[in-house]
């Protein structure tokens, strides 16, 4: 068992443990911080998979953008002065049983296949240039559509949160 295996297990345990916090925490702020550590651990997993550009994008977009947006959403929609939102009384029992059944099903299907465990050589000089090439060559239409979608979503969000006109 070499060092990189140990580091992978540490990262995987951190990801799963903080995801459990993000799922089961009574306080919604604690859940958001659980998601924070999960996202950072997943960026570490991307580094293990030689996806350096994706790891940086994960940290910048998810941790720097989406998580801050989530925290804004929590703090703006909270009437209590101590910023603690206790989740409702719905039982986790049914959801946990359902999830356990789903996990057993997926894992038993995973056992059936023989997976290729020999990774291909990562591109020399990082993945940024190949990803840029693919975005502007093979996936150009999807790239343009996603940019229009992002623009429309941001305009729509700004329109939705705008206050009513006083007239």
């Amino acid at each position: 068992m070499n060092a990189s295996t140990v580091i992978f297990w540490i990262i995987a345990v951190l990801a799963v443990g903080s995801a459990i916090v993000a799922t089961y925490a009574k306080n919604i702020v604690n859940a958001a911080f659980g998601l924070f550590f999960t996202l950072l651990a997943i960026a570490g997993v991307y580094v293990f998979l030689d996806a350096d550009f994706l790891a940086i994008t994960q940290v910048v977009v998810y941790v720097g953008g989406i998580l801050v947006l989530l925290l804004f959403g929590i703090l703006l929609t909270n009437k209590n002065i101590d910023f603690v939102t206790v989740d409702g009384s719905r039982s986790y029992l049914v959801g946990t049983l359902l999830g356990a059944a789903l996990l057993v099903m997926v894992l038993s299907i995973l056992q059936l296949a023989t997976w290729n465990n020999v990774p291909t050589a990562p591109p020399p000089g990082g993945t940024t240039a190949p990803i840029g090439y693919m975005l502007l060559k093979n996936y150009l239409l999807a790239f343009e559509f996603s940019s229009v979608t992002l623009l429309a979503a941001l305009i729509g969000a700004a329109y939705l949160v705008r206050g009513r006109d006083k007239d």
Binding site: V16, A22, T23, T38, I42, D87, G95, A100, L102, L103
Partner: peptide, 15 residues
């Protein structure tokens, strides 16, 4: 798979 299932549990259980 584990992270996905945790997400499913959260969606089903949270209000």
């Amino acid at each position: 798979a584990i992270l996905f299932v945790l997400g499913v549990i959260g969606i089903v259980s949270r209000k």
